[in-house]
Simulated assay, not measured.
Amino acid sequence: MLGQGGFGAVYKGKLAGGELIAVKRLSTDSGQGDLEFKNEVLLVAKLQHRNLVRLQDFCLERNERLLIYEFVPNASLDQFLFDPVKRAYLGWEKRYKIIGGIARGLLYLHEDSRLRIIHRDLKASNILLDAEMNPKIADFGMARLCAVDQTHGATSKIVGTYRYMAPEYAMHGQFSVKSDVFSLGVLVLEILSGQKNSSFHKGDNVDDLLSYAWRNWKDGTTNELVDSTLKDSSTTEVMRCLQIGLPCVQENVAERPNMATVALMLTSYSVTLPLPSQPAFFMHSNTQSEVEMLWSEDLNSGATK
């Protein structure tokens, strides 16, 4: 067994020819099991990109629902990033490559594939790392398929992980390609700092990561934000990523860049980066309790659009 989630368990397996695979087995008592299973099969089977985990096959027989994926040997990003020992292995070169790969994968989902996919649950535990530490976006059980000319939607069922949620989605169920961009911004700041947004702390001060990153940018003390294991890294690239991450977490959807712009800012030094402004400050509001209430209501009613 490689891991366990609300959907069921993931196992490491081997085919007759010796190829390693990861098998996701949906639990029979998972309330969203059938829906998530159909979602992943229909969506992921049609997606082909080096920064997306590859679905190789599936099984739907009696009560068994199995998804067979390529085996990704280095597990997920969170197991390195938030481990006090393992995160030292993630030097700046690896972290920069991971940020760039996630951005390319999202760009493909939003603009370059035959389908337009909004992931809705982009987070460190859903970024898998292959043998060369290349990132692969995984877990499309919460993803939504949109028409090619559609960029947003709404739902009465809010799903995902709170600390990565855009405020308009957490509060009103409004999701878009820009809500994925918000999640990416949180992820970039976590990669820079080596800490979780929900439990960020520096010394005796407990804060949310977005607020802390903004204050350090504004005060010119960004070295206080950066993971201590990265002190000898490229200051220019670190600052560049910070200046890209902060615009992604703006409260106003229109002020966030799209993924084409993000990918260009990461690869082209001729692009003028936007000056960051104050990000969304919703971590200390009543949002969390309200979101939990919505989740509770949805679990009881099964309402969805």
Results as ranks from 00 to 15, higher is better:
residue 60 L to F: 13
residue 267 T to M: 06
residue 166 A to R: 11
residue 12 K to W: 03
residue 58 F to K: 01
residue 276 P to Y: 07
residue 117 I to K: 02
residue 176 S to H: 07
residue 200 F to P: 04
residue 245 G to K: 05
residue 60 L to C: 11
residue 47 L to A: 05
residue 7 F to D: 03
residue 46 K to C: 10
residue 186 V to G: 00
residue 251 E to V: 01
residue 177 V to Q: 10
residue 132 E to W: 00
residue 6 G to M: 12
residue 165 M to K: 05
residue 255 E to M: 13
residue 109 L to Y: 09
residue 66 L to R: 04
residue 231 K to Y: 07
residue 192 L to P: 02
residue 125 S to I: 03
residue 131 A to T: 13
residue 113 S to C: 01
residue 85 V to M: 03
residue 246 L to E: 09
residue 61 E to A: 09
residue 82 F to C: 09
residue 124 A to E: 02
residue 47 L to G: 07
residue 183 S to P: 07
residue 210 L to H: 05
residue 181 V to H: 08
residue 142 M to G: 02
residue 301 S to K: 12
residue 37 F to Y: 11
residue 230 L to E: 03
residue 156 S to L: 13
residue 167 P to E: 01
residue 204 D to G: 01
residue 175 F to P: 09
residue 12 K to V: 07
residue 171 M to W: 05
residue 143 A to S: 08
residue 134 N to I: 04
residue 218 K to G: 00
residue 131 A to L: 12
residue 300 N to K: 15
residue 86 K to Y: 01
residue 29 D to K: 14
residue 275 L to V: 15
residue 90 L to Q: 09
residue 110 H to S: 08
residue 163 R to F: 05
residue 138 A to E: 01
residue 78 D to G: 11
residue 294 L to R: 13
residue 94 K to M: 13
residue 116 R to A: 05
residue 221 T to C: 06
residue 260 A to L: 14
residue 9 A to T: 13
residue 215 R to E: 14
residue 221 T to V: 08
residue 287 T to K: 00
residue 81 L to I: 09
residue 210 L to P: 00
residue 131 A to K: 15
residue 3 G to E: 08
residue 240 R to N: 10
residue 245 G to C: 04
residue 237 E to V: 05
residue 155 T to I: 08
residue 124 A to V: 02
residue 22 A to S: 12
residue 187 L to W: 00
residue 272 T to L: 03
residue 109 L to Q: 11
residue 89 Y to F: 14
residue 224 E to Q: 13
residue 91 G to Y: 02
residue 45 A to L: 12
residue 280 A to V: 01
residue 206 V to F: 04
residue 111 E to D: 12
residue 2 L to E: 13
residue 255 E to N: 14
residue 118 I to S: 06
residue 169 Y to N: 08
residue 93 E to S: 13
residue 52 L to W: 06
residue 106 L to V: 05
residue 285 S to E: 14
residue 115 L to Y: 10
residue 262 V to G: 04
residue 104 R to D: 12
residue 88 A to W: 08
residue 296 S to E: 10
residue 75 A to G: 05
residue 303 A to H: 14
residue 46 K to H: 12
residue 2 L to F: 10
residue 80 F to H: 15
residue 93 E to C: 04
residue 247 P to W: 11
residue 111 E to A: 07
residue 110 H to C: 08
residue 24 K to M: 06
residue 82 F to K: 11
residue 200 F to M: 04
residue 196 K to S: 07
residue 23 V to Q: 05
residue 251 E to F: 08
residue 124 A to R: 01
residue 200 F to I: 02
residue 147 A to P: 00
residue 191 I to N: 10
residue 268 S to N: 15
residue 271 V to Y: 11
residue 40 E to F: 04
residue 181 V to D: 08
residue 233 S to I: 00
residue 79 Q to R: 15
residue 229 T to R: 10
residue 133 M to A: 05
residue 215 R to K: 13
residue 176 S to C: 09
residue 301 S to C: 08
residue 244 I to P: 01
residue 107 L to P: 00
residue 60 L to N: 13
